[in-house]
């Protein structure tokens, strides 16, 4: 029981040959892992065929149109609608026809292809992440077990963790804060994610590449629903849109906002910097008037 009170002095050899090497090796392994997974990603990117990528990008384009249709004028919306849903040459139409010839066949081959590629990708990821982890754990457990490696500065976990934290040390009276090398390894593992983000994160991908990658990665997931069904649903979405621009009566609404002056401070500030004249008249007006104006504007909208 006396042991718990006094500090245990650890040998410097433990520091030099256990604690620092584990930290160092973990860092190097994670760096290698990152680069390795990057190489694998680049290789898998090359395998993506052009047709699939085109289909996915068309889909994202159509989705963007149905999402942001109210930000473009009527004419350009109609142009895009024609481009997508036109009976003869519409982009979403053509693929549907091509797929209609043999829907079962296409579905089958599609799912088979995507499944196999998805599984291999997952396997690659698992191998890259799990294999070094297992190897390191066995390495640490095999070579550095049986002695106290370091002392945790924070409060001890409960006694139940003792067998886990002090692997290979069978001393009932030893304080729980003294832990073996495996716990130090886990601490390094969790903590090194932060270090990796700083040291290895410098050569991160540019946003364009990231976007490309995200599209490519989302490919297999989307492919599991056959592509022509997605096309049909997108086409219906676009056809159902009743176009109404948010820029209708935008001048009136802008002036209304100026007269309100209390709701949105930022917007007003921007307005005062760009156009100095209406800001002086905006202060004395009351809110009921502006509400009436708003209602008028809405009626005109319809």
């Amino acid at each position: 029981m006396k042991i718990e009170d006094q500090d245990i002095v650890l040998d410097t050899a433990i520091r030099n040959w256990v604690v620092i090497p584990i930290l160092f090796v973990l860092f190097i392994v994670s760096a290698l892992k990152l680069n390795f997974s990057r190489i694998l990603q680049i290789k898998s990117n090359k395998k993506q065929d052009v047709q699939k990528l085109m289909e996915i990008q068309t889909l994202t384009r159509a989705k963007k149109l149905s999402q942001y249709y109210n930000r473009i004028p009527l004419q350009s919306f109609l142009m895009r609608k024609y481009y997508f849903t036109n009976k003869e040459t519409g982009v979403l139409q053509v693929i549907e026809k091509a797929d209609d010839n043999s829907p079962m066949n296409m579905m089958f081959s599609n799912s088979m292809l995507s499944d196999s590629s998805g599984v291999t990708d997952m396997l690659k990821g698992n191998v890259v992440h799990m294999l070094p982890q297992i190897a390191m754990m066995t390495w640490v457990n095999h070579f550095f077990s049986g002695f106290v490696a370091c002392k945790l500065p924070f409060f001890p976990l409960t006694i139940r963790f003792k067998s886990f934290l002090q692997r290979g040390i069978e001393m009932a009276s030893l304080d729980v804060t003294y832990v073996s090398s495996l716990s130090w390894y886990f601490l390094c593992w969790f903590g090194s994610e932060g270090i990796n983000a700083i040291v290895l994160g410098e050569n991160q991908l540019t946003p364009d590449q990231q976007l490309f990658q995200s599209i490519v990665e989302s490919g297999p997931g989307q492919q599991q629903v056959p592509i022509h069904k997605l096309y049909i649903s997108e086409k219906e979405n676009i056809e159902l849109i009743r176009h109404e621009s948010i820029f209708d009566n935008v001048e009136e609404r802008f002036l209304n906002n100026l007269t309100k002056n209390n709701l949105d401070l930022e917007f007003n500030k921007a307005a005062t910097t760009t156009s100095t004249t209406p800001s002086t008249s905006s202060t004395d007006s009351t809110s009921p008037q502006s509400l009436n104006l708003n209602k008028l504007a809405k009626r005109r909208n319809r």
Partner: peptide, 22 residues
């Protein structure tokens, strides 16, 4: 929560190196 782990790692590391090895 996410920056706690690097903190604990370096805390433990320097705590041990400076105060517990002789």
């Amino acid at each position: 929560a996410s920056t706690l782990m690097p903190f604990i790692l370096f805390w433990t590391f320097f705590y041990n190196i400076i105060h517990h090895y002789k």
